[in-house]
């Protein structure tokens, strides 16, 4: 396994990730940290990136895939420019997240986990953002950083999305 993988995936093809692996590849228990840094760099974990991490750490791609799919943080497909993380924690649920989710889906034409055709927005319904007193709430991760929006209504959520779109 190792020789073919090492020949296929080389440092020069992953200049942003190579230094991370220089630092962590030899440290035991670092796989999750490496995957987090890889996702920060590329936005998601592609088959190639998993292959490269395998080549450098000696872990099999199957093992890496197993870890990546266990945790909700990791994505195996690219996302849009803005990631909408709609909170479905208990406080948000009783305050009507479901209606907000429907409003977003209707407005953007995407369901949980999907990305709009223009690649502007990805919708993710997440467990809890910990902003329970602002329920229902969502966090939007975009090019200009993270922002939390609280006390959402079906109307306000659409307004927020359009404001983000207008910012470019």
């Amino acid at each position: 396994m190792c020789e073919t993988i090492k020949a296929t995936y080389q440092d020069k093809d992953y200049p942003e990730l190579a230094p991370v692996l220089d630092k962590y590849a030899g440290t035991r228990g670092s796989l999750i940290t490496i995957l987090q840094k890889a996702q920060d760099t590329y936005g998601y974990l592609s088959t190639d990136v998993i292959g490269y991490i395998s080549a450098r750490t000696g872990e099999t791609p199957a093992k890496i895939y197993g870890v990546a799919t266990f945790y909700t943080q990791f994505r195996l497909a690219p996302i849009g420019e803005n990631l909408i993380m709609l909170c479905a924690g208990t406080a948000c649920h009783v305050n009507g997240t479901q209606a907000i989710a429907e409003a977003i889906s209707e407005h953007l034409g995407v369901d949980d986990g999907e990305t709009t055709e223009d690649n502007k927005f990805t919708l993710n319904i997440v467990a809890c953002l910990g902003c329970c007193s602002l329920a229902p709430a969502m966090m939007v991760k975009g090019p200009s950083g993270d922002a939390v929006y609280g006390n959402l209504t079906k109307t306000s959520v659409v307004k927020v999305i359009e404001e983000i779109r207008a910012q470019g």
Partner: peptide, 25 residues
């Protein structure tokens, strides 16, 4: 600091340890 990657079961001690070691929790 070790940043978790999102798994409720990691609140369980032995699962948390597995996660700290870079495994499925």
């Amino acid at each position: 600091i070790k940043a978790g990657a999102g798994a409720f079961v990691c609140g369980e001690e032995t699962a948390l340890i597995a996660s700290l070691e870079g495994e499925r929790g």
